[in-house]
Design a protein around this nucleic acid. Sequence first.
DNA 1: CGTCTTTGACCAGCGC
DNA 2: GCGCTGGTCAAAGACG
Length: 328
Amino acid sequence: MHVSNVIRPQLEASMELNINSHDDFGVDISLRLGRPDLNVSKSVDEIDKISLDKISDAISEGSDKKRSAHGIGFRIQSCEDPDTDPTMKLDCLSKDVKNKNMDNKCVSSRKDVKTARNEDHQEVLERQEQTGLKKTRVCVKAPCEDPSINDGCQWRKYGQKTAKVNPLPRAYYRCSMSSTCPVRKQVQRCGDDDTSAYMTTYEGTHDHPLPMEATHMAAGTSAAASLLQSGSSSSASLSYFFPFHNVSFSTTNSHPTVTLDLTRPKYDPDQLPNYPLSSSSLSFSSSDRPSPSKSQTLSFSGLRSQAPLVKYSQMAPLSHQTKLSGQQ
DNA sequence: CGTCTTTGACCAGCGC
DNA sequence: GCGCTGGTCAAAGACG
């Protein structure tokens, strides 16, 4: 959190520069996934426009409810809106979080925390019932030998189960950065052909600011979930945001699910010599930190591209810093 | 001593 | 109604 505080002013300055150089875009999306300079055909462009319009419409329809129901924080605003100043947004966010934290101060004992969690959960469930949908889940299948994936957030393990179908254990984590944060994730080793991959499933929305690396991850997964939310689940529109990886849509146990498969690149990088290396929407890399604190970083990164300008207006969910032991 | 992990028990949803 | 399964709880132990 300290590092995040130090880096934030730099980010804000960077955001301001980007805004000044992209005034001609009418849409301000809370994402910067990056997109290479592709010669996109007109038809794909049209599909992309439709997708973005759908997202914008779905969210601007006063759909705070929808966002909560899907568990993803994501917002698109018009650049003509004076509220689009990123500094103001961050300030508002900070105030929002501060207010929440103030509210949370009275939640001191473990029992109270549990009660607060249950109340939050009930509230979310009620909203879900109203919308007829369960929370959107985002699965990230990542290749790694170690389940310790660091995407900037802190997680506390609260359970582990061995399913009958898959004998490999599934671990349950809860975000520990805030006592009332409802975000949960499941980490399960893939038991099929690829035993060196882990499937991480995220659910819920963080109620606190995220570190920088976590916001990258959050932005990418938010894109997938937002597409899902907008009803734009076609491979074409999903490929817009994730041009280099397999993205699929499914519904399991009434949970709309977006699966990002980082184990198999969609394209052969050798055949795309013009793509900037860092422009891939998703990246997975190992840090050089020595064991036993060996960790891997899962992040979304991107260069500025032809895609509409992006900035964070609300901290999105989906990040994790996993510490697992004794699972192998 | 506080925090985190482990693990058996418990509960709710679902299918038969 | 019963059994199965996934998800969560909570006590006990480990760890720094």
